[in-house]
């Protein structure tokens, strides 16, 4: 056990699974990094933000390879490799690039098990960076997990910390279905204690990072940290919050969300993806339909505006949900008084 960054935790998960299972291969743009040029430098980058660094040197060119800048071809190749016996981990770099290869994911990988009568397995992991706050502009900052969550046949993981990332990525690699694993690029240097040994965290089981009586906050990915900050501040004022990290948006641990709302009677959902048809609307619908009687106040969503992610630093900061906005949403549901029925 030692302190590891989000980046190191992901690197360690890849390394340990590659050591354990020779069928695990990595492919993506610049993930080996450097050896394609004329400078003779090998393993220089390890992906644009250094997540796969060192793996090319350890496992060689047969298991870690750079692909052409053609998502349609290499994601398609990864899907085929998975269907025929390998366990590829393909890196899409920025998730925003999924538009170039959505058919391979949505119409092929996601459908194989269903359309081949349960006889096909597609043990594919697609890793990609998501999220705003990195000043990377509108085409490199989206949080597209609702897009994948919408597609039956895909599993979608949004880890919230280094410990979570390692265990969930190992689970993803061992899973026999296609898994989309989304890493918030602002979190790569976040650190916490992570076991040195391999371990796996099951999908579809929410983690409660805080437990309280007054308000349930459901948050995804990086937003879990903001929700924890808000909950800790509110605790000092006597407002105690449960913070639910669903870990995976598909499958979604609806049971835990509903139980927490039954306990607290109030719900705030924090989602950094665009607000129409996102996880916040999904969870709000779930609770409105199945826990309506438990609600003491309207459900509040803390989400960005329905616009592309701005490039200007000041506007990008305004765009993203933060702990202050979560705190004020919690205070607003606490202050809510129901109008008299007969008034």
């Amino acid at each position: 056990m030692s302190k590891k960054s989000f980046r190191q935790a992901i690197n360690e998960a890849l390394r340990q699974e590659m050591q354990r299972d020779p069928r695990v291969i990595l492919m993506g743009e610049d993930i080996a990094g450097g050896q394609g040029g004329t400078a003779g430098v090998v393993d220089a980058w390890g992906g644009v933000l250094g997540v796969t660094k060192g793996l090319y040197t350890e496992f060689g060119a047969n298991r870690v390879f750079d692909t052409p800048i053609s998502e349609a071809s290499y994601i398609g190749a990864a899907v085929g490799a998975a269907a025929t016996g390998l366990r590829p981990v393909a890196e899409l770099m920025f998730v925003d690039f999924v538009g170039c290869c959505l058919d391979q994911i949505m119409n092929q990988a996601a459908k194989f098990r269903y359309m081949f009568g349960g006889k096909a397995r597609t043990p594919l992991v697609i890793r990609a960076m998501y999220g705003a706050g990195f000043n990377a502009a509108a085409q490199h900052s989206q949080a597209l997990y609702p897009l994948f969550t919408h597609i039956p046949g895909l599993k979608v993981v949004v880890p919230s910390s280094p410990y979570e990332a390692k265990g969930l990525l190992i689970e993803a690699i061992r899973d026999d279905d296609p898994v989309i694993f989304l890493e918030n690029k602002v979190m790569y240097d976040d650190e916490e204690e992570v076991p040195d040994e391999p371990y796996s965290i099951p999908f579809g089981e929410a983690n409660l990072t805080r437990e309280g009586d007054d308000v349930t906050i459901v948050a995804f990915g990086r937003m879990v940290n903001f929700a924890n900050e808000a909950a800790d501040r509110l605790e000092k004022d006597g407002i105690s919050c449960t913070v639910v990290d669903p870990r995976t948006t598909s499958p979604l641990d609806s049971a835990t969300i509903l139980e927490c709302v039954e306990d607290t009677g109030r719900l705030v959902i924090v989602d950094e993806s665009s607000p129409r048809c996102n996880m916040a609307t999904d969870v709000a619908a779930l609770v409105a339909e199945q826990a309506f009687d438990a609600l003491k106040a309207p459900i509040r969503q803390v989400v960005p505006p329905h616009t592309p992610v701005p490039f200007a630093t000041v506007l990008e900061k305004l765009y993203l949900p933060d702990s202050a906005r979560i705190e004020s949403a919690v205070r607003s549901v606490m202050a809510y008084k129901k109008a008299k029925q007969d008034a």
Binding site: Y163, G167, P195, E197, P198, Y199, S200, I201
Partner: peptide
């Protein structure tokens, strides 16, 4: 639970 998740 964290201990139980470790491989082996």
């Amino acid at each position: 639970i964290r201990f139980k998740r470790l491989d082996g």
